[in-house]
Design a protein around this nucleic acid. Structure first.
Lengths: 143, 143, 143, 143
DNA sequence: TTTT
DNA sequence: TTTT
């Protein structure tokens, strides 16, 4: 399968971090992704996308991101359904993140200084990246 | 904004082609995107993603794709809401396609022959691609 | 065809803006895309990717971006070859950008103020986006 | 960092599988990715992109793919340089694959039957995918 | 030939 | 139910 999503947007609320019964961290948040041009009514529009992160990524997000913060999110699209309190089946499409890059701090907070700025390496948690492989590709490459 | 999605999957039903009041073609379909590994219950799982195409792409899809057909879909994620017949607000996240590539024919239909095979150039409608630009990049490039 | 690239990185030099003989603007620059972890030698590594932009996007980039500036780049991979001054054929793989989002200003320049900050709507030039379509999808949708 | 590439194309030659001194499998091949429209000269054009796969993915590719086979490739862009036999530094940009999906069989080989068809699950090796997580997201979700 |  |  091929299933890849890349988004840049801002958190519309503080992220929501929880744990499953098995103690696995899960953090969810909604990302506002601006549309480039104004609508017919002259308003700027945005798409509001649900993001889910698991484990270490969930913890980094839950502890470091706040409402208004700009991030790049990479992941895959997932569909899920559940029954709400009225007994109705609700269908959800969300992005399961596997890499989140912290970009600039929220507007009007620039005076808060570096604490608001992206945590360096820790801000990006990339499950693809194999450090060993990188060195291989520069050392004893058979081609 | 950055908002990009790429999926490879199969249509779970025939696509649904309609026209807006202004005569603009819109085609919708659901794509099943397999997850690579089996779930805890030993079943193969898939994500079911709603796709929307407009205009020329809507017509090509509506006239050429059928249930079971494998395609690659490129587009952007869109959130939308509407009120259902019970007066409840329903939130939808779907992919607005801007490029669809027709891959192999539906399972168990291979005997149907070439008619089932991807229409050559017409199968991929890529709004990015500027033929002029391509030639520029091979002709009078100033670098 | 499916051919899509999304990168976030920083310009290693000021961009290079030129015009073809036909007066078409072309801007090129190199993007440094950090690798998430350090190499075997303890050094941070990056990939250096050549980016090409055409026309209106070329002009916006040429006039607004500077060395060190962080951007998100969306585009397609292109291969090209030319003969260098020694008469040898050189093969090049580069990204033809169709959307560039200006992110934060270069480090150590934050005191330069808003002039260094991303131009709002103009900073992102997205050839995909059809404003009409957006409104359609919220107005007279036949589904 | 964000660094993602998705391509659909065909192998222009059989893949080249080797091992590093440490016994790590590396397979390289070139992918032809068609451009959607014809050039000024009326010819169909393509971009030729170098792909590298490591370890298990390298072995699956080396043992199963052949010239002409259509695949979807997901990965990241990497820049690399080496000195050629003339002592000149050569710069290379290639895609390090982390997911390869086998699509239809080579042209003119359709009569070869199912042997030519994609190996089911084994054809796609997706390092992102965490089976456990999938089940979590359907079971004891805290939201 | 590399950015932060 | 929405961010800047």
């Amino acid at each position: 399968m091929i299933n890849r999503v890349v988004l840049v947007g801002r958190l519309v609320r503080d992220p929501n971090m929880r744990y499953t019964q098995n103690g696995v961290a899960v953090t969810t948040f909604t990302l506002a992704v601006d549309r480039p041009f104004v609508g017919a009514d002259g308003d700027r529009k945005a798409d509001f996308i649900s993001i889910v992160a698991w484990r270490k990524l969930a913890e980094i997000v839950g502890e470091n991101l706040k409402k208004g913060r700009q991030v790049a999110v990479e992941g895959r699209l997932q569909s899920r359904s559940y029954d709400n309190r009225d007994g109705q089946r609700v269908y959800v499409t969300e992005v399961v993140a596997d890499n989140i890059l912290f970009l600039d701090s929220p507007r009007g907070r620039r005076e808060d200084g570096e604490a608001e700025v992206a945590p360096a390496a820790g801000g990006s948690v990339d499950p693809f990246f194999d450090a060993e492989e990188v060195d291989l590709s520069e050392d004893d490459l058979p081609f």
